[in-house]
């Protein structure tokens, strides 16, 4: 079977898998961003308890393997009465894991905003919430974008693990195709290329574009 014939035969299944991977990626990214923001802000709180909760969360999710976390969420949580569909369990695990890494980026981004910005906002009598939301976060966001680009690519690669709980993503389809055809080079070569194209030609350019837009907003570009 030529590679063209292979693609003709299995292309649609690769495509279906890619769509599921894209879904995992976007939902996990959204969750990771929300968690990172909340945990990052909590880590900067004056309140020791709030800070402590964030530290514990970050430590657990960064300090243990994503695969184990995935299995916990999919296989162990049901024992405590919380059963998630495998698609949901997949992006929740990936999102929670990368969110813990993202929290450190958020904390660092916020701390990288010069003290003078806090003081100027304070001198205008802005409330702490407004100060954070209107003055500090927009600037922190721009500083954070390059590392977030890397983190999201990491996240994309990690979504391949959800195949292990039978979410029919790209990796899962590839394994199935390989199982029936034994054309390992073609199968995993195709999967490799799709992951690469997704990362390099969609995620990276999008992050670059976002950075440019934000820098322009800051008048830096």
């Amino acid at each position: 079977m030529s590679y063209i014939e292979f693609l003709k035969e299995y292309g649609p299944r690769f495509w279906d898998g890619t769509l599921v991977t894209a879904g995992q990626f976007f939902l996990a990214s959204a969750l990771a961003i929300v968690i990172a923001l909340i945990a990052g802000l909590m880590k900067l709180s004056r309140n020791g308890l709030i800070r402590g909760i964030a530290v514990v969360y970050i430590e657990i999710f960064r300090g243990t393997s994503l695969l184990v976390q995935l299995y916990w969420i999919f296989f162990v949580l049901p024992l405590f009465g919380l059963t998630l569909p495998k698609f949901t369990a997949g992006f929740v695990a990936v999102g929670m894991n990368l969110g813990a890494y993202g929290a450190e980026l958020v904390r660092g981004g916020i701390q990288s905003v010069p003290k003078g910005q806090w003081e100027a906002a304070y001198a205008l009598s802005m409330s702490p919430m407004r100060r954070m939301w209107r003055i500090i976060l927009p600037q922190a966001f721009v500083n954070m974008l390059p590392p977030w680009g890397n983190l999201l690519i990491e996240l994309l690669k990690n979504t391949a693990l959800v195949a292990l709980i039978s979410v029919s993503d790209l990796m899962f389809e590839a394994k199935q195709i390989n199982g029936s055809t034994f054309l390992s080079a073609q199968t995993f070569g195709t999967a490799l290329i799709i992951y690469y194209v997704f990362a390099r030609f969609i995620v990276t350019p999008f992050m670059r574009w976002l950075e440019l837009v934000m820098r322009r907003k800051l008048g830096r570009a």
């Binding site: 205008l124 009598s125 003055i135 600037q139 008048g219």
Partner: peptide
């Protein structure tokens, strides 16, 4: 402290806002 206004040695303007927006931020938000 809203009775007090302060200008700093290093200006500390908000870089993501235009000159006009910098001057509107306090009145609108506060």
């Amino acid at each position: 402290r809203s009775q007090i206004g302060m200008c700093f040695q290093h200006f500390n303007l908000f870089p993501h806002m235009t000159a006009l927006e910098n001057c509107m931020e306090g009145p609108v938000q506060v």
